[in-house]
Design a protein around this nucleic acid. Structure first.
Length: 345
DNA sequence: ATGGTTTTTACTGCGTC
DNA sequence: GACGCGGTAAAAACCAT
């Protein structure tokens, strides 16, 4: 029965809050070139097919805790507040049985009835642990939903999170831990699993618990549930940063190129993938003359400018060396040009 | 706990606008 | 003078042992 319920819950969770494309037809043409805008719902981004403009960027505001960068955000300016929908935990069917052996009029009951009631009570008690778990789950799913939309994480991530949280709940991993903490940890894990990771810091900002506890809980959950998570890669962070920065497609492509070109290099090992991604963005911006400062990138990536500096130098060293070959002579030229420029300037 | 590595913090000087 | 950038040292965080 739990099995059935699980599936139903997870998939039915909130179908109506996720935006369907038809509700917002006017944004389906690119404001720049009038081209057709397609949605990459996996990443929660909308991109013009013709010029590569990321349409969702109109709302890069500095809102405190709840900015988000997905289609759902654009559509509704959806608030973080109370979740719009959440699990129908017990469908309001839970039963309360008074402890008093009285009937509806307050009269005492005959012994036989009393015994009957007693047994009912016992059984109700037995199932009420389930009820409390359901309540717990309900609250957790609400939180998960709230945070997910604040971070612009798409539906499949939320579903994965739900499944994971249930497992944690069933294995009694919640003891001594906050619902919020476990929810956030699960969400973090799910986002990574779905290939659209976000930094712990970002979760710390939208969660009620701090970054540290999220990390701790995340590790704990991973260990207890025997889940293993492959390390995240820099390129998984790239689309997010690109959209946060409103990066021109050209620069994003360049960054991706740099990342791909340096994928097998030693300079990566032991380094924070987010740092690499941030550095790649900066390097790309440099090569394309896009004019993003280290501060700009540091801001959205939560990577210090010092780290960006160090990483991007290494990246360019390797990248420059890599492309001495035929086809990329052009790239090489571009790079030389820009470095000379900055040297002159 | 400890030691090695990475990242951050804080402070610096330099050149440009 | 503010800003962007580079360098550095020391502190903090991280990770495996």
């Amino acid at each position: 029965m739990t099995e059935k319920l699980r599936d139903a819950d997870v998939t039915d969770e909130k179908p109506e809050e996720e935006t369907d494309p038809e509700t917002t037809p006017e944004i389906n043409t690119c404001p720049e070139c009038g081209g057709h805008v397609v949605r990459d719902s996996n990443r929660g981004e909308r991109v013009c097919q013709d010029c590569g403009l990321v349409v969702d960027d109109e709302h890069i505001d500095r809102g405190p805790d709840w900015r988000s960068f997905s289609e759902s955000e654009r559509q509704e300016k959806s608030r973080v507040g109370s979740p719009i929908t959440n699990l129908m935990h017990d469908k309001g069917l839970s039963t309360r049985i008074s402890w008093q052996d009285k009937d509806a009029y307050g009269r005492s009951l005959p012994a036989k009835k009393r015994r009957q009631l007693h047994r009912l009570r016992t059984w109700n008690q037995r199932t009420s642990t389930r009820d409390s778990k359901e309540r717990n789950l309900k609250q957790a799913l609400g939180e998960i939903d709230r945070m997910a939309s604040a971070l612009g994480l798409p539906k499949n991530v939320r579903e994965t999170t739900g499944v994971m949280y249930r497992r944690a709940l069933e294995e009694d991993l919640l003891r001594g831990r906050s619902i919020e903490g476990v929810s956030t940890a699960c969400l973090y894990a799910a986002a990574r699993q779905c290939g659209i990771p976000r930094s712990f810091e970002k979760f710390g900002r939208v969660s009620r618990v701090g970054t540290l506890e999220i990390k701790r809980t995340y590790r704990y959950i991973m260990r207890e549930l025997d889940l293993e998570m492959p390390p995240s890669t820099p390129r998984e962070y790239l689309p997010q940063f690109a959209s946060d920065l409103g990066l021109p497609q050209e620069v994003e492509n360049k960054a991706l190129e740099i990342l791909e070109g340096t994928e097998t290099e030693d300079i990566r090992i032991g380094k924070n993938p987010i740092g690499i991604a941030a550095a790649a963005v900066y390097a790309a911006s440099l090569l394309c003359n896009a004019g993003y400062t280290q501060d700009d990138i540091s801001e959205v990536t939560d990577i210090s400018v010092v780290t960006i500096r160090n990483r991007y130098q290494e990246l360019l060293d390797v990248y420059g060396a890599e492309f001495t070959t035929a086809k990329e002579a052009q790239e090489k030229f571009e790079e030389d040009a820009t470095t000379e420029e900055s040297a002159d300037a």
